[in-house]
């Protein structure tokens, strides 16, 4: 039983990171219709910014952390203002290719600025553990889960109860009507990109805390996209649930399915495949994702 709980907690920890990134995908997609393939790169840049302030400039982690969040938001806004604002209403393929290009540019630029090595982002939780009745969990993982949980509650309340949140939801539903009702649609789009940058920076810092800061950490974005699609691209709760499912499935697959051998057949590392296998299975049953709304086309 202890093992199962440890696997679940480990999955929840990674799942929280996927959920945060998936949240960014959903928010930007819902608000602007752009599928941001550079979300993983946003996370990587956020982690590098925190590393710069905490490790290179020797600021306390608790100071570097909010600075990285603010700069994550600034990155989102700048990307929107420079590139995406002009793409509103363009075909989804054009915007996808634009974000794919941005992902590549962000990685190359980060490589030029910070180099291609692996760096340690030391936090107050590094190498510290919590032991509860024989179940051992790193403080960093626990911190990731708790902060993510608080953030999800805050975001849900923001979108359901605040005027700005409701305006964002309204804009996502129907941009034209929202504009006619006096909502500043461009401002809403910019805020969506800023929030996308914030959650990505958070995910990047949590990921770096659990492992290290490096360019390749941006690859986590593709799994977060699987989580977002799994949960439903138009559902915030779906993004959160999708991330958690992907994290836990990965954790179980890694513990029980990886490295199995049958005669000369070797399963290898199933963990990386598991997330996509689950996504495909769910989409075969519910093409719109778990919480996604089915689109009805009236003719």
């Amino acid at each position: 039983m202890e093992k199962i709980i440890e696997i679940v907690l480990s999955g929840l920890s990674m799942g929280s990171i996927y959920s945060l990134l998936a949240l960014g995908f959903v928010l930007i997609f819902k608000s602007t219709g752009v599928l941001n393939f550079a979300q993983g790169e946003f996370a990587m840049v956020g982690a590098f910014i925190c590393y710069t302030f905490a490790s290179l400039m020797k600021l306390p982690y608790l100071v570097a952390f909010p600075i990285a969040i603010v700069l994550g938001a600034v990155l989102g806004v700048v990307i929107y203002a420079l590139f995406l604002r002009r793409m509103i209403g363009e075909s989804i393929f054009s915007t996808i290719m634009l974000t794919v290009g941005l992902a590549s540019i962000l990685t190359s630029t980060a490589g030029l600025i910070w180099g291609h090595d692996v760096y340690l982002l030391a936090s107050p939780f590094t190498n510290k553990v919590v032991s509860i009745r024989g179940i051992i969990l790193s403080q960093g993982a626990l911190y990731t889960i708790l902060v993510s949980l608080i953030l999800f509650i805050v975001f849900l309340r923001f979108f359901n109860h605040s005027l700005l949140g409701i305006s964002m939801k309204g804009t996502a539903e129907d941009t034209d009507t929202a504009g006619l009702m006096g909502i500043n649609v461009r401002m809403i789009h910019m805020i969506a990109w800023a929030i996308g940058g914030i959650v990505a920076a958070l995910a990047g810092m949590f990921l770096a805390e659990q492992s290290f800061v490096r360019l390749e950490m941006s690859h986590v974005g593709i799994k977060a996209m699987a989580a977002a699609i799994l949960g439903g691209m138009d559902s915030i709760a779906g993004a959160v649930l999708g991330g958690v499912i992907v994290g836990i499935v990965e954790s179980f697959a890694s513990s029980y399915l990886s490295g199995l051998e049958f005669a000369n057949f070797h399963t290898g590392d199933i963990k990386e495949v598991a997330a996509f296998a689950v996504m495909i299975l769910v989409l075969m049953i519910r093409p719109q994702g778990i919480f996604g709304k089915e689109k009805v086309e009236r003719v």
Partner: peptide
């Protein structure tokens, strides 16, 4: 980068 399950095994 996450080796928790590998190490648990």
């Amino acid at each position: 980068i996450d080796f928790s399950s590998h190490m648990s095994a």
